Amino acid sequence: MALSSTSVYALVVCAAVLWGAGPVLVKRALNAGARPRQAVLVALAADTAVVWTAFALVRGVAIPGVLLDADPRVLALFALTGALGTGIGRLIGLVGLDRLGASVYSATLSVRPVFATALGVVALSESVTPMHAVGVCVLVAGLVVLERARTHGGGERGGWRRRDLAYPIVAAAAYAASRTLRRTGLHVGGVDVLAAAATNELAGLCVLAVVLGVRYGRDAFAPPRESAAPLVGSGICFAVGMIAVFGALAAPAGRVVVVDPLVATVPLFTVGFAAYLLETERITARVAVGTLGIVAGAALVVW
Results as ranks from 00 to 15, higher is better:
297 G>I: 08
59 R>E: 15
73 R>H: 12
45 A>Y: 07
221 F>H: 01
82 G>M: 13
73 R>A: 15
290 G>E: 08
45 A>T: 15
74 V>A: 14
222 A>C: 07
37 R>N: 10
271 V>S: 03
296 A>Y: 08
18 L>C: 09
74 V>I: 15
21 A>I: 04
77 L>Q: 08
298 A>H: 06
15 A>P: 11
213 G>F: 02
82 G>I: 12
281 E>C: 05
59 R>S: 14
265 T>S: 13
51 V>F: 12
95 V>F: 15
244 A>Q: 01
241 G>K: 04
278 L>Y: 00
144 V>Q: 02
286 R>I: 00
98 D>N: 12
169 I>D: 05
92 I>S: 04
183 R>A: 06
130 P>V: 01
28 R>C: 10
203 A>S: 15
120 G>R: 13
170 V>A: 15
34 A>I: 02
64 P>L: 12
34 A>S: 14
5 S>F: 13
249 L>I: 04
176 A>S: 14
80 L>Y: 09
8 V>A: 07
187 H>E: 15
295 V>A: 06
41 L>G: 08
5 S>V: 06
185 G>Q: 04
272 G>L: 14
170 V>H: 05
77 L>S: 09
121 V>Q: 12
14 C>M: 14
209 A>D: 09
209 A>K: 09
262 L>H: 08
71 D>H: 10
63 I>R: 01
58 V>E: 14
267 P>Q: 04
255 R>N: 02
35 R>W: 02
9 Y>G: 05
299 A>E: 01
187 H>W: 11
297 G>L: 11
265 T>E: 03
93 G>R: 03
159 G>I: 08
22 G>Q: 14
79 A>I: 03
14 C>Y: 12
224 P>D: 02
